[in-house]
C-alpha cells in the first residue's frame, strides 16, 4: 500500500482517440468507486498521429500524487520518447516509471491495481503480468 496516495497512470498512444478510449475503458472496468488518476497522452498537440513529449509531461504532472506514476505506451516513438524523457532526469515527476506491458490489457490491470491502493511496484507487476493472459 502507498499511504493513502494512489499511483497515477499515463497512457501514451500514437493516436489521441486510442489513448482516450483506453483510459475510459480501464476506468470503466476498474469498477464503480473512485479510480486512481488516469491521463491520456495520445497523438500530437495538433491532433495528428505521433508522440508528443509535451502531452506526456503534462499528463504525468496531472496524475502525480506523490505515489509514483506508471506510464504505459503503445509502440515505436511512444516507447522511445518516454525512455528519452526518463533518461533526461528532470522532465517527468520523480517516481515516474515506464511499465513494460501490453497497452490495453496492461492499462486495465494498472488502473484496477492502482485504484485498490497498490504501490508502484505492484501496479507495474500487475500490468506486466497481462502479457501472460493467453487468449487461445
Amino acid at each position: 500500500m502507498s499511504g493513502g496516495k494512489q499511483v497515477g497512470i499515463v497512457l501514451v498512444s500514437h493516436s489521441g482517440e486510442v489513448a482516450t478510449a483506453v483510459a475510459e475503458l480501464a476506468k470503466g472496468l476498474a469498477g464503480g468507486g473512485a479510480t486512481a488518476p488516469v491521463a491520456a497522452a495520445g497523438g500530437t498537440p495538433d491532433g495528428g498521429l505521433g508522440t508528443s513529449s509535451e502531452l506526456i509531461t503534462a499528463a504525468a504532472e496531472q496524475v502525480d500524487g506523490g505515489a509514483g506514476v506508471a506510464v504505459l505506451v503503445d509502440l515505436g516513438s511512444a516507447v522511445l520518447t518516454v525512455k528519452a524523457l526518463l533518461a533526461e532526469g528532470d522532465e517527468l515527476p520523480a517516481g515516474t516509471r515506464l511499465v513494460d506491458a501490453p497497452f490495453v490489457e496492461g492499462a486495465v490491470a494498472a488502473v484496477v491495481t492502482a485504484s485498490a491502493g497498490a504501490d508502484l511496484d505492484a501496479v507495474e507487476a500487475a500490468a506486466s503480468e497481462a502479457y501472460g493472459y493467453r487468449k487461445q
Partner: peptide, 17 residues
C-alpha cells in the same frame, strides 16, 4: 532537447539522445 519535444516520431528521441 528541442528535437525530443518537436519531432513527434521516433527520430526525435533518437537524434535528441
Amino acid at each position: 532537447r528541442q528535437l525530443v519535444s518537436t519531432v513527434g516520431g521516433a527520430s526525435g528521441p533518437l537524434y535528441g539522445t
